[in-house]
Amino acid sequence: MSDSANSPESRTPGASLRHARGKGEPRFPDGPKPDPAGSHFERRIRSFQPRRSRVTTGQADALQRLWPKWGLDIDGRALDLGRLFGDEKPVVLEIGFGMGEATARMAADDPETNVLAVDVHTPGQGNLLNLADLDGLSNVRVANGDAIILLREMLTPDSLSGLRVYFPDPWPKKRHHKRRLIQEEFLTLVASRLRAGAIVHCATDWEPYAEQMLEVLTAHPEFENTRADGGFAPRPGFRPLTRFEGQGLDKGHVVNDLLFRRVQQPESGCG
């Protein structure tokens, strides 16, 4: 056996990249940035907690190969969705996609809808890019960073055809409830970016959070419940049952879906 065959680079795919990275150099030079918006925007309470976990070789390879093509750093600069996707299909924003399995399946099932999927979890970003590549999906883009900055600074009014928020962090402790994403202020921002008739679809297995979501969405003047009874919706067939969700159901967790429509506000008449 030759010396080259016994080298660390030959034993572990991707090891040469890790070995060559010097102190202070980015983990993925052509991949998602650690803090894309930097300090350009005010500090505030965040609704997400960055998670650090091991990136597999396949995920790392996808980040290196596909981020320049399908990745987006949320840096606060204005975003042209038509240019990002290369067409004028309707765009649905998904906030927090985990490992991306459900996102990829929904994108495959509905190729006429573009999906802009936002998360801060590097392994999940790599996994979704890999799934999109394997399935030949051209209607998925992966965004890295703070979804609030994306909505407020980068997207134009009426640019989105839907919003998906599946299993967001419930922040169960009372003192942390202010960190929950689904709040009145957030919904007002979302409403300004959604077209009339667009659907906001939330799902959670944390019942107290589900009740809060229902209360806040019901009270907001720019949304109406698609359920005539004003309650929760059964899981629609287009939202896949994820492995995480299935494990929760096996443990007796109750999963609640909420489907609310962005209403058309009446134009004010002239006096």
Score class of each variant (00 low, 15 high):
residue 7 S to H: 05
residue 7 S to R: 09
residue 8 P to W: 12
residue 10 S to D: 11
residue 10 S to V: 10
residue 11 R to N: 04
residue 12 T to A: 08
residue 17 L to M: 06
residue 18 R to I: 11
residue 18 R to F: 05
residue 18 R to L: 14
residue 20 A to V: 02
residue 21 R to T: 04
residue 21 R to Y: 00
residue 25 E to M: 14
residue 25 E to P: 01
residue 26 P to Y: 02
residue 28 F to T: 06
residue 32 P to K: 01
residue 43 R to D: 11
residue 44 R to Y: 06
residue 46 R to M: 11
residue 46 R to Y: 08
residue 47 S to R: 01
residue 48 F to E: 04
residue 48 F to P: 13
residue 50 P to D: 01
residue 54 R to H: 04
residue 56 T to N: 02
residue 58 G to I: 03
residue 66 L to G: 00
residue 69 K to C: 07
residue 72 L to R: 07
residue 74 I to Q: 05
residue 76 G to W: 09
residue 77 R to L: 06
residue 80 D to H: 12
residue 82 G to K: 11
residue 95 I to M: 09
residue 98 G to F: 14
residue 98 G to V: 12
residue 98 G to Q: 08
residue 98 G to S: 05
residue 99 M to H: 14
residue 99 M to R: 08
residue 100 G to A: 08
residue 102 A to T: 13
residue 105 R to I: 03
residue 106 M to Y: 01
residue 111 P to M: 01
residue 111 P to L: 04
residue 119 D to K: 09
residue 120 V to G: 08
residue 122 T to Y: 09
residue 124 G to Q: 06
residue 126 G to Y: 07
residue 126 G to R: 00
residue 128 L to S: 07
residue 128 L to F: 05
residue 128 L to Y: 11
residue 129 L to I: 02
residue 137 L to V: 07
residue 137 L to F: 05
residue 137 L to A: 00
residue 138 S to H: 11
residue 138 S to K: 10
residue 139 N to I: 01
residue 140 V to C: 06
residue 141 R to Y: 04
residue 142 V to N: 06
residue 143 A to R: 05
residue 146 D to K: 03
residue 147 A to M: 10
residue 150 L to Y: 05
residue 151 L to K: 00
residue 153 E to M: 02
residue 153 E to G: 04
residue 154 M to W: 12
residue 163 L to N: 02
residue 164 R to F: 03
residue 169 D to V: 09
residue 170 P to K: 00
residue 177 H to Y: 02
residue 181 L to Q: 13
residue 182 I to H: 00
residue 183 Q to N: 09
residue 184 E to H: 12
residue 185 E to P: 11
residue 191 A to Q: 02
residue 192 S to A: 12
residue 194 L to N: 00
residue 194 L to I: 09
residue 194 L to P: 08
residue 197 G to C: 03
residue 199 I to R: 13
residue 202 C to L: 15
residue 203 A to P: 09
residue 203 A to M: 06
residue 206 W to M: 06
residue 211 E to G: 01
residue 212 Q to E: 12
residue 213 M to C: 11
residue 215 E to A: 14
residue 216 V to H: 04
residue 220 H to N: 14
residue 222 E to I: 07
residue 224 E to C: 15
residue 225 N to Y: 10
residue 228 A to M: 07
residue 230 G to N: 06
residue 233 A to G: 12
residue 234 P to Q: 10
residue 238 F to D: 14
residue 240 P to N: 01
residue 240 P to W: 11
residue 241 L to C: 08
residue 242 T to A: 06
residue 242 T to E: 07
residue 244 F to G: 11
residue 245 E to C: 10
residue 246 G to H: 12
residue 247 Q to W: 13
residue 248 G to D: 08
residue 249 L to R: 15
residue 250 D to Y: 03
residue 254 V to T: 13
residue 255 V to T: 14
residue 262 R to Q: 06
residue 263 V to D: 00
residue 265 Q to C: 11
residue 266 P to L: 10
residue 266 P to Q: 07
residue 267 E to V: 15
residue 269 G to A: 15
residue 269 G to Y: 07
residue 270 C to K: 15
residue 271 G to C: 14
